[in-house]
């Protein structure tokens, strides 16, 4: 092959443009995916924040009880399953599109780049929304027992730490969930990817 000219291009700026376009134009589908992530993270955030509020307010419920740890593990599992399911389906249903892109010259790693960046973005947005929903849910849940303003007693640093953990879970699991179907579709011969039906 004529070595020098045999080059495939896909600059990161183009990857981002494409991902943004995909997200914008698939908005209603994206909304569905993101809401799956949002709900999961909202559940997690609410659990952690209510416990934190109780602790700062010196309430009994805030002490690190065994059941709380179990709830936390459970919430991460639920969040994980929700996120994985949403993202996995969103990628798998685009296998044929991946086949088409490979026909046009996309490399295996381009496909991965597109889907990993896209899922990271969706995971981030879902994590942010979930965190916000979680704050409101916490206020609603603790208003009666500890007062509507109770949440403001949590130090900013702790709030930030909860946010960081929520995003880490959300982005991390989203990317992880996208990796497998994207990897599978990207590795397929284009002929097989084009034949693919869910």
């Amino acid at each position: 092959m004529r070595e020098r000219e045999a080059k495939i291009y896909f600059p990161t700026s183009e990857v981002f443009k494409l991902v943004i376009a995909f997200i914008q134009k698939r908005f209603s589908r994206v909304l569905l995916t993101v809401s799956g992530v949002t709900l999961s993270i909202a559940f997690y955030t609410t659990l952690v924040l209510t416990a934190t509020v109780s602790r700062v307010m010196g309430s009994e419920a805030g002490t690190l009880k065994e059941y709380y740890i179990w709830m936390l593990i459970l919430s991460v599992l639920v969040a994980g399953a929700g996120i994985m399911n949403s993202i996995f389906m969103a990628v798998a249903e685009r296998t044929r599109e991946i086949g088409t892109m490979k026909c046009l010259g996309a490399l295996y790693r381009h496909i991965l780049e597109i889907f990993l960046i896209e899922s990271a973005l969706l995971g981030f947005i879902g994590g942010l929304l979930g965190y916000i929903v979680g704050i409101f849910a916490t206020v609603a849940l603790t208003a009666k027992t500890l007062g509507a303003m109770a949440i403001f007693k949590i130090p900013g640093g702790s709030m930030l730490a909860v946010f960081a953990r929520a995003e880490a879970i959300s982005v991390g699991l989203s990317v992880l969930a996208a990796a497998y179907p994207a990897y599978r579709a990207a590795k397929l011969d284009p002929a097989e990817a084009l034949r693919f039906v869910i």
Partner: peptide, 9 residues
């Protein structure tokens, strides 16, 4: 794989 992608492109 790289050269094949180039060919398709």
């Amino acid at each position: 794989a790289y050269e094949l992608a180039w060919l398709r492109c």
